[in-house]
């Protein structure tokens, strides 16, 4: 147990945690605005990953050889935009009609689960019909799998990029929420949707923007996952989504900073359990959820617990 080993685990934890964080932000944003747990969010992440894969395939003529940075980022860009669109679509088609009719929250929750199954099955059909199988290998520029050696530390480039990206995104998000007009609108909407509508703000646009934002971040999270574990399938969003949801709850659902902190904590636990107690390696998923229960026992509203009567995000 030397310092290098511990440092290595911390780096790995940061890397895994930031992926959870990116997805957890989406849960928290939608929950903050609509008080809705969007269970389809994990599958939105899967959609983002598959759309990146498909765009990459089209751009490289399905050869996936020598992917340049330009091509890769174009594909990711296309995917982010399309995934944001899918996010808005799920809201417009599935949630909005129910919300407009004043359906109870539980009905919308069930709808979200339905959307989740729909997206999984849809991409399963697409993968089997057009991509040649449920499981696909994910390709990306060689640069990301490049490994830097510092002393006895081995650090893949990706494990540095993802946490930095996550922190930047968090800062950007906080800027949007607190310094821009749409951010003020989002926070106002989270307070009282009816008053915001009475003030003449276009609540549909704002909610759509929130869904787009969450979905775009999920796409980024999904791509980082696919680069770390280069095998993608239509069911990948299920467990990852569930863990990201746990991260959002641990951090205090409704708080963007909390979601990021929760994501990091979950990442650390998942890396530390197999790292320090290798015999328990197979149980790491169980530990992630034990942590959830443990935190909620002491802080029922999560670490950055939000009192929805007084503050937002």
């Amino acid at each position: 147990m030397n310092t290098a080993f511990i440092l290595q685990q911390i780096i790995n934890g940061f890397s895994l945690g930031s992926m959870y964080a990116l997805i957890a932000i989406g849960y928290t944003l939608v929950y903050g605005v609509l008080r809705l747990i969007n269970f389809a969010h994990g599958d939105i992440m899967m959609v983002g990953t598959f759309l990146t894969f498909i765009s990459l395939g089209i751009l490289t003529g399905w050869k996936f050889e020598h992917i340049s940075m330009a091509i890769f980022f174009t594909a990711v860009g296309i995917s982010i935009i399309l995934t944001a669109g899918v996010g808005i679509l799920t809201h417009v088609i599935a949630y909005k009609p129910l919300l407009d009719k004043g359906a109870p929250k539980i009905s919308i929750l069930i709808t979200a689960i339905g959307i989740s199954f729909f997206l999984e099955s849809l991409f399963n059909v697409i993968a089997n019909q057009y991509l040649g199988g449920t499981y696909q290998a994910f390709y990306f520029p060689k640069f990301f799998s490049h490994i830097i050696h510092i002393g006895s530390l081995t650090i893949p480039v990706l494990t540095i990029i993802t946490p930095i990206l996550t922190i930047l995104i968090l800062l950007g998000l906080l800027f949007i929420l607190y310094k821009t007009k749409i951010g003020i609108a989002i926070r106002a909407l989270a307070f009282d949707i009816y008053t915001v509508q009475l003030m003449g703000a276009n609540s549909n646009f704002i909610i759509g923007f929130v869904f787009a934002l969450g979905s775009a971040l999920a796409a980024i999270g999904g791509v980082s996952f696919a680069m770390a574990y280069p095998s993608i399938d239509p069911y990948m969003g299920m467990l990852i989504g569930l863990k990201a949801f746990a991260a959002a709850v641990v951090g205090g659902i409704g708080s963007v900073t909390g979601a990021v902190i929760g994501g990091f904590i979950l990442g650390f636990v998942e890396v530390a359990i197999p790292g320090f107690l290798p015999e328990l390696g197979g149980w790491k998923d169980a530990f992630a959820f034990i942590l959830l229960i443990f935190v909620l026992l002491f802080k029922p509203t999560g670490i950055m617990g939000i009192n929805f009567e007084r503050q937002r995000f």
Binding site: Y229, S231, Y235, M236, M238, L239, I273, P274, G275, P278, G281, G282, K284, D285
Partner: peptide, 16 residues
């Protein structure tokens, strides 16, 4: 050692 269906990270098992 054991894994679970759907696992993607086997570094713990590999390390052992």
């Amino acid at each position: 050692l054991f894994i679970n269906t759907g696992d993607k990270d086997f570094n713990a098992q590999v390390a052992q």
